[in-house]
C-alpha cells in the first residue's frame, strides 16, 4: 500500500530559484526512508510541502490516498507528524506535560481523556518522570524525545524526522535512534521519513533517497548507494566506516564481499597473513 505519492512536484521561493524540480516519489506504508543530500538540496522544503507548511507551485501530494489541498489540510496534518531539528524551537508548552498535551488541546480532546493519554505517550518515550519539568532542565535528547511524543500522540501514519538528531550530542542521538527502532517494532505500519546528514543513521533505513538541487538523483538500498563510488564522490557523501573499509580492502586484494561485521573482516585479514 502506498503511504506517500508525490507527482511532478514543483516549488520555488522566487521565480529564479526553483527548490523542488518536477519531483516524483512514492513511499510504501511502513517503509523507513532516509533522504540525504547536502544543505540546500531541498530536503527540508520537501518535508514542509508534505505537511502543508509551504504551498506547492504545481504537482500533487497524495498522503494515504488523500490529496493535499486547502480542504484536506487538517486531515493530512493528522496523518503526517513532524519532528524538527531544533529541540528548543518546537517545545511549546511550559512543561513536558503541557507540551505533550498541546496537540490534544488543539483537537479539543476533553481533559479527562487527555490526562491518561499524556502519561501513556510520555511513558512511551521514557519521559514519564519528567512530566512537570521545564525545558531548561532537560537535555537536548530529552527535548527531542518529548517532540517525538508530541508527534506520536497525534497517531500519525507517517512520521517525518527533519534532521531531528543533528543538534544532539552522541548520547542524545543514540537515545533517539533506539526510540525510533522501538517505535517501528511496536507499530510496523508507521511510515518513517528521516532527513539526515548522519550516514550511519541513514544506513539503518530501508531505502535511501539522494536529493540534489531539488531532484532525486538516486533511490535505492543503502548498500547499493554506498557501492556507487562515482555518486559518493560526486555528491561528497560520507560513507559508513565498514563500507569504506570493505571498499579499500577489496582494492588491496582481500576477498571480503560476504563478510558483514568488523570481526569477520578482521578474521579474513589475519587468516591470510
Amino acid at each position: 500500500m502506498k503511504s506517500v505519492e508525490i507527482k511532478n512536484l514543483n516549488y520555488s521561493y522566487n521565480v529564479n530559484t526553483p527548490v523542488i524540480k518536477d519531483l516524483s516519489l512514492t513511499i510504501d506504508k511502513g517503509e523507513y526512508v532516509s533522504i540525504v543530500g547536502h544543505n540546500g538540496s531541498g530536503k527540508s522544503t520537501l518535508c514542509k510541502l508534505m505537511i502543508g507548511l509551504l504551498e506547492k507551485n504545481s504537482g500533487s501530494i497524495i498522503i494515504d490516498g488523500v490529496e493535499l489541498n486547502k480542504d484536506t489540510l487538517n486531515d493530512i496534518r493528522h496523518k503526517v507528524a513532524i519532528v524538527f531539528q531544533n529541540p528548543d524551537n518546537q517545545f511549546i508548552g511550559v512543561t513536558v506535560e503541557d507540551d505533550i498535551a498541546f496537540s490534544l488541546e488543539n483537537d479539543n480532546v476533553p481533559r479527562n481523556e487527555m490526562i491518561p493519554l499524556v502519561r501513556e505517550y510520555a511513558k512511551k518515550v521514557g519521559m514519564l518522570e519528567f512530566l512537570n519539568k521545564e525545558p531548561s532542565y532537560l537535555s537536548g535528547g530529552q527535548k527531542q524525545r518529548v517532540a517525538i511524543a508530541d508527534a506520536l500522540i497525534r497517531r500519525p501514519d507517517i512520521l517525518i524526522l527533519d534532521e531531528a538528531t543533528s543538534m544532539l550530542d552522541p548520547n542524545g542521538k543514540a537515545e533517539i535512534l533506539s526510540l525510533v527502532r522501538e517505535m517501528r517494532k511496536e507499530n510496523p505500519s508507521l511510515t518513517i521519513i528521516s532527513i539526515t546528514h548522519d550516514i550511519e543513521e541513514a544506513y539503518l533505513s530501508d531505502r535511501i533517497i539522494l536529493l540534489n538541487e531539488g531532484e532525486i538523483v538516486l533511490s535505492c538500498l543503502p548498500n547499493e548507494l554506498f557501492k556507487n563510488r562515482e555518486i559518493i564522490k560526486k555528491y561528497n557523501l560520507s560513507v559508513p566506516f565498514i563500507v569504506e573499509l570493505k571498499m579499500r580492502l577489496k582494492d588491496l586484494g582481500y576477498d571480503i564481499d560476504d563478510s558483514s561485521s568488523l570481526n569477520e573482516i578482521g578474521e579474513k585479514i589475519w587468516q591470510s597473513k
Binding site: 514542509k48 505537511i51 507548511l53 487538517n74 496534518r77 493528522h78 507528524a81 513532524i82 524538527f84 531544533n86 528548543d88 524551537n89 518546537q90 511549546i92 506535560e97 503541557d98 498535551a101 498541546f102 496537540s103 490534544l104 488541546e105 488543539n106 483537537d107 479539543n108 480532546v109 476533553p110 481533559r111 487527555m114 490526562i115 499524556v118 508530541d150 497525534r154
Partner: peptide, 26 residues
C-alpha cells in the same frame, strides 16, 4: 528564525487560534 520555526511547529500540531481548544491545565 526561532519564531518562524515555532510557528511551523505549532501549525504542524494543528494549532488554530480561532478554533475551540480544550484545556489540559486547570
Amino acid at each position: 528564525s526561532r519564531s518562524e520555526e515555532l510557528s511551523n511547529a505549532m501549525e504542524a500540531r494543528g494549532y488554530d487560534p480561532y478554533a475551540k481548544r480544550s484545556r489540559y491545565r486547570v
